[in-house]
């Protein structure tokens, strides 16, 4: 294009910055994995509360899911980072990012996991109860694994999305790939090379994550079904 005539690609800046970019990838992976773990805890806990007998708990979970799924992630992370300190809760950027990712991913995980739980036949639950197991044991020991198996592909794509969403945490300067790339870019003005490179890095990380999930699926959900 006319305006860019004469732009010469120069990957030497990327090469020089490679160590810090690779370290930043670890930061991204750290955020993503911590966020996923928190999301799973929120997801499983939320499903148990969502279907409990205690009505206020059910309403609270429903309200939480609606609130998180219908507001932008950027606003959520800003709220935690800038608004909560005003009521005395001050977190550093990285814990803020993990919390926001976990809460956001958790809200989606609740809906996904709940779908899996509902796919489990009533007979399974009755068989567990008839054996003298109580409700929480039935959920944990009988319902959960087949439910997770049923929704594992959906959960995987949600978690890939969560991994890519870590880049939003650059808005509060959490330590991750996009924010490190922004610094390098603002020092070198090599936008094409820097953002081109991290695009490839994100692609590789997503692909690796899917491989990891595939292995988990093979290991834990490989029992035969009809």
């Amino acid at each position: 294009m006319g305006g860019n005539v004469g732009y010469q690609l120069d990957f030497s800046v990327v090469w020089d910055a490679l160590p810090s970019l690779l370290w930043a990838c670890l930061g991204t992976i750290g955020l993503a994995v911590s966020g996923m773990l928190l999301a799973i805890v929120i997801g499983v806990g939320g499903v148990m509360l969502r279907d409990s007998r205690f009505k206020p708990a059910r309403w609270a979970v429903m309200a939480f899911v609606e609130l998180i799924r219908n507001t932008p992630f950027l606003v959520q992370i800003f709220f935690i980072f800038f608004a909560l300190p005003l009521i005395g809760l001050r977190l550093d950027p990285t814990p803020t990012a993990i919390l926001a990712l976990g809460i956001n991913g958790g809200a989606y995980a609740i809906e996904i996991i709940r779908g899996g739980v509902q796919s489990i036949g009533k007979g399974q639950i009755e068989a567990g109860l008839a054996l003298g197991l109580h409700k929480a044991q039935v959920f944990r020991l009988i319902v959960l694994k087949p439910a997770l198996r049923a929704i594992f592909p959906s959960l995987t794509s949600q978690f890939v999305l969560l991994t890519l969403t870590t880049s939003v945490a650059s808005a509060i300067s959490a330590y991750e790939l996009t924010s490190v790339a922004q610094q390098i870019e603002s020092n070198t003005f090599r936008s094409f090379e820097v953002y081109g490179t991290i695009t490839v890095f994100y692609l590789v990380m997503s692909w690796l994550l899917m491989r990891v999930f595939d292995q988990i699926s093979r290991r834990y959900f490989s029992y035969p079904v009809k």
Partner: peptide, 8 residues
């Protein structure tokens, strides 16, 4: 009637 064994 449907056995209801735990598949996993």
């Amino acid at each position: 009637q449907q056995f209801n064994l735990f598949p996993h």
